[in-house]
Simulated scan of single mutants.
Amino acid sequence: MNEHIIAFILGIVEGLTEFLPVSSTGHLILVGNLLGFTGQKANTFEVIIQLGSMLAILVLYWKRYLSLLNFSTIGKPVKKLDAIHIILGVIPAALAGLLLHDFIKTQLFSPKVVVISLVAGAILMIFAEKNHGTFNSTTVDELSYKQAFIIGLYQCLAVIPGFSRAGSTISGGLLVGANHKTAAEFSFLIALPIMVGATGLDLIKSLDFLHTSDIPMFAIGFITAFVVAMLVAVGFLKIIGKIGLTVFAYYRVVLASVFFIYFIL
């Protein structure tokens, strides 16, 4: 298949799945193998298109990120999301990713791990839907520092391929009293720093595999992921409160079954 078509398809897959609780890593591994696009070039390409998804979040929330630079609101009686919320939400997973990066890349990127993670993540999401209490945070501005930190702890699960960063953080958000939209929006906001760090590290290690001849392919994937991710993020926030996480959990089990049949049997 033409590489430009592959780039377009994978860009769509990345944009569709990066901010949904379904594991973008699992989808990219599966679709990449189905298209015969694997190896170091494919790994580098995945890093580039993830940058497209990150740009989508930056464009959607640039005003919110800019407001985080106003440190005068920290500690004020009026509730407002501030930089400390983001820092507390990012630090746990950032430390876990930094300490375990090489181990994750060499030992955990396997179909068996993805299958287990997809199912484990689905169980967590169903548990969160059935066991969350009263929602005391209905906007991100109502989140406490404690809630932000606990959600950040749940994000640590996302270092395991297939678990899904969105799935783990939204589940954590529900369990600490945030409603679906608030948990999803905070998940988006803490995604950017985490993804910048993770993809930046991967990109540095992949520089030797970047060639000018690959620019058209990478550009197609990047732009496609950017556009699709932006549309999906906006749409997801509108529907997550109505449909919840359970439907995504069942989808993950189906995806795990496909993984098991295709890669393991």
Rank of each mutant, 00 (worst) to 15 (best):
T199P: 05
S144T: 15
A122V: 03
T169N: 04
V31F: 04
N136D: 12
I160A: 13
F109W: 05
T139S: 15
Q107F: 09
S23W: 02
I190R: 04
L143I: 12
I215H: 12
L255K: 01
G75S: 03
N2K: 03
L51N: 02
F45S: 10
F163T: 02
I126P: 06
I223K: 06
L98C: 03
N2G: 12
A42P: 12
V159C: 07
K181I: 00
L28D: 07
T138M: 12
F135K: 10
L143F: 03
V253T: 08
L95G: 08
F19Q: 00
K181A: 11
D214N: 14
N33T: 01
V228F: 14
K242W: 09
L60T: 02
S257W: 10
L20E: 11
H211T: 13
V196N: 06
L265G: 08
T199R: 07
Y250I: 14
E14L: 07
A148P: 01
N136F: 07
T17L: 07
L81I: 14
F222P: 05
V13L: 13
A7Q: 11
K41E: 15
V113W: 03
P77F: 09
I123K: 11
I123R: 12
E14Y: 10
S213P: 02
G52F: 05
P216I: 00
A219E: 05
L99P: 08
T38K: 14
S53N: 03
S171L: 06
E185C: 02
D82L: 04
L265Q: 07
G15L: 14
A122P: 02
T199I: 11
A256N: 10
A42G: 13
F45M: 14
I91M: 08
T138K: 15
A229R: 01
K238I: 07
K79T: 09
I49R: 08
G152I: 00
H211P: 02
H132M: 06
Y154G: 11
Y262L: 00
N131F: 14
D141H: 11
A256T: 08
T246F: 10
V115H: 05
P193N: 05
I215G: 09
E142P: 04
N131G: 06
